[in-house]
Design a protein around this nucleic acid. Sequence first.
DNA 1: GTCTATACCTTGATAGAC
DNA 2: GTCTATCAAGGTATAGAC
Lengths: 188, 188
Amino acid sequence: MHKGKISQDRIISAANKLFYEQGYNLTSVSDIATEVGITKGNLHYHFNSKDELLEAVINHRLEIIVASLEQWEREFQEPDARLKRFVKMVLNQEADILRFGCPMGSLTVELGKCQQPLKTKARTMFDKFANWLEKVFRQMGRKDSKALSKHLLAMVQGAALMSYVYADLKILKRECKEIEKWIDSLSC
Amino acid sequence: MHKGKISQDRIISAANKLFYEQGYNLTSVSDIATEVGITKGNLHYHFNSKDELLEAVINHRLEIIVASLEQWEREFQEPDARLKRFVKMVLNQEADILRFGCPMGSLTVELGKCQQPLKTKARTMFDKFANWLEKVFRQMGRKDSKALSKHLLAMVQGAALMSYVYADLKILKRECKEIEKWIDSLSC
DNA sequence: GTCTATACCTTGATAGAC
DNA sequence: GTCTATCAAGGTATAGAC
């Protein structure tokens, strides 16, 4: 890695923002260059292709996800507290979710139809959460931890999607409350 | 409407298929024309713009949705049977959902970020289901029919999305079974 | 109604000066 | 590293012959 890290990071950060807010296919390389304040030509010096840039963006998101999960493990020891912290992440991002949907879900859906290799890459974000949740459910002594992990992710994705479709915060809050009740019901 | 209905319908049908399978933004007018077996120029005689064609596609989907809902009302009188028929629709489309996601959800998510007027149009599909489900919940005597309707849609969307992300039929079947259990729990 | 031809724009990507 | 200039390809849409 002999290319300047500062510029690289600024490009990734801008691309991350625009891919989320506008979608991958509707964001042009020019858009990103403008956002950073450089030219297209310069951007292509740092990243050979748009696809390569998306990979870098996903890797960046993965780092943030992993750091969050580790943080939550340090902060909370009880499994149900850990699960609730996961749900709280959604509420912390409420404004963005209403406007742009779930960053992970909307990206994977967009890429899934025609850009299979990129979809596979995007799915690794789901894997991080899925594996972590699975671990937490095992910690609760559940044998069906894999299914429970996917179930919790499905509920969260459903909540994010519906509140995004209707741009309605009440939906998001109500659905998250339902999910928390479900978590409570597991302890009994 | 003086333009030939046969050609119109064939174009709408092809566009409907391709918008679903490839997404709206990644499907070009040429793609659709080729699928129908006509030229781009001819297609633009029938539909002035790609946006206009999408509107026609959504109107077409709305007709199908309304017809289904009316059919279900004729076939099932009990509210819980009607709700279960709704869930069964998802299972009937399992192969497509695994490959392309929910036609309604994936389209609305794609359009939502940058194409606000088209998103609003796409959302009318959700409205049809939401209003119908609300009616069924009222029929059950529930005061919170609006919230329940959105909740059921959220669960279904979550199930479709997660099984699409992992292209895993087991997820879809398991989640639908959970939803059916939830419906049963309402009757008590 | 259907075609061919084309105008006009934006895209992702490259070449080469500095 | 950053720029300007340019490319080829593909997009939507239009004009006009038949």
